[in-house]
Amino acid sequence: MERRNEVLEVIRNKPGITFRQLARELEIGIGDLQYHLRRLEKEGIVFSRRIGKRRYLFPKGFEENAQRLLIAISTDTRRRILLLLMRGPLSQGEIATSLGLSQPTVSYHMGELKKLGIVKTEERGKSVIYHLNYDPETIARIIKEYRPSIWENLADRLIDLLTGIGDEK
């Protein structure tokens, strides 16, 4: 029971932790951890979401946030944008230049991130500055463990190709 409380405590403190990270952190056997997680999930205290090749664990009450976060990091370009914004606020043009992307592609992804509430905007003169609007530690933890499948990688390239159509560069 004490071990289960430790598992729950870590998930509460680090929402979005993966099974592997959790096992490493608690130095607990895979079988033991699977048993405790099954019990916690059955009791509805924690829940998990699979994306890419990893299963992420979240505490109860985090459902909406988990959904937003996992959609936000589901494409390669958005992960790169979020990592870039962790260093500080940037304009759309600066993001496009730093990542070597076209303006329409960045515009599409920023629109999606804004809709999800992961970034917020601030108007500074003529340009719009994007700020991260979510706990950077949680975002970094989820991105670090994210392992996309080959289909997802190919789909990400197709999305960038389609969103880049119409670029005047």
């Binding site: 289909w151 990400d156 197709l158 999305i159 969103t163």
Partner: peptide, 18 residues
Amino acid sequence: KVSFVAYKKSHLRPALYL
């Protein structure tokens, strides 16, 4: 299949056409 995954992720209409 690539177009399907792209559509599922982005809901971009061109991906659906593809």
